[in-house]
Amino acid sequence: MTDTPPGRDGLVDLLGVLAYAELTAFLRLAEDAARLAPTLTDRAALSDLAATEYAHFRLLRDRLTALGVDPEQAMAPFVAAFDDWHVQTTPSDWLEALVKAYVGTGIALDFYREAARHVDEADRALVDEVLADESTSEFAVERVRAALRENPKAGGRLALWARRLVGEALSQGQRVAAARPELAALLVGQDGEDLAEISRMFARLTEAHGKRMSALGLTPGP
């Protein structure tokens, strides 16, 4: 029997959690398109985004298979946390769905982008490709900003919703990290990093969140 290469368990966890995140994003976006999209154009656009998420899932699934890992087993440890997050943050209308797709999912995936800094170049490139959110950004920003121009009072409600999304995402992220120490180790590198670097990581997460909120025309809040 060969030994497991250092960091391989963390990599498998990273690919597994991202694979399930992309699969659930596909399912939720498709559901929101059918349930909440106000026009056929919006329904089609959100369906296109869902299709992109599914394509990302396939890339991750194929990489896990190439590593000799069963994708279902790799995803299984993360099902409860992601499903709970989606249940607790079910959008009640179209604008909440857009904010969730852009802000809520974005802060969650930022954690895994940080973890990808400590994997090899090829897998880091794969994660970067999967986490690219230009299409989601353009679509959500355009729709939310247009809605706020028509009804500026909606901004307060959506800002509160975004803060709730982020709070729930951070809570679930901590839950996952506590349960999967190999994945948590990727966030601070294989040899560990000092508290200053961990503080800088959270500063990067906070900055990225603030930029998303500002792009939507919402106040980041405390």
Rank of each mutant, 00 (worst) to 15 (best):
V130K: 03
R149D: 09
L95R: 03
Y102G: 02
D110K: 08
G104A: 00
E150I: 07
T136K: 10
A122R: 11
E142Q: 15
A122Q: 12
A97H: 03
D123R: 00
D120I: 02
E121M: 11
E134I: 10
E96D: 11
G106M: 02
E142S: 15
A146Q: 14
V127I: 08
V99R: 00
V144R: 03
G156E: 14
I107A: 10
E138G: 14
D128N: 11
E129C: 12
R113W: 10
R163K: 09
S137D: 15
E142M: 12
L98Q: 09
E142R: 15
V119A: 00
V141W: 05
A97S: 10
A101I: 07
V119Q: 01
E134F: 13
K100M: 08
A154R: 13
E96I: 05
A108E: 03
A159H: 04
A108D: 02
F139T: 06
V130W: 03
A116M: 04
L131W: 08
R124A: 09
F111E: 06
R163G: 08
R124Q: 12
T136A: 11
A97C: 06
A125Y: 12
D133M: 07
S135V: 12
V130A: 04
R149G: 09
R149H: 14
V141I: 10
E114C: 06
R157I: 14
A154H: 10
A154K: 10
A154G: 13
L98F: 11
D133N: 12
G155K: 04
W161F: 13
A159F: 04
K100C: 08
A108W: 01
E142I: 06
V103H: 00
A154F: 07
G155F: 07
R113F: 13
D133E: 11
A115N: 01
G106R: 01
R117P: 03
V99S: 01
A154W: 06
A115G: 02
V99W: 05
E134A: 14
V99M: 08
R163S: 10
A115D: 01
V103Y: 00
K153C: 11
F111C: 08
A115E: 00
R124M: 04
A125N: 08
G104S: 02
W161D: 01
A146C: 07
F111A: 09
R143F: 06
V141Y: 05
A147I: 08
A159W: 02
W161L: 08
S135Y: 09
V144H: 02
A122N: 07
R143D: 00
G155D: 04
S135Q: 14
E134D: 14
E129L: 15
P152C: 07
R143V: 02
E96H: 07
A162C: 05
R145P: 01
A162T: 03
K100Y: 10
L126C: 06
A122T: 11
P152A: 11
A140D: 02
A159I: 06
S137G: 11
Y102I: 05
D110A: 15
E96F: 04
E96C: 06
A115Q: 00
R124F: 06
A159Q: 07
A140W: 03
A132P: 03
P152G: 10
R157G: 10
E150A: 14
R157M: 13
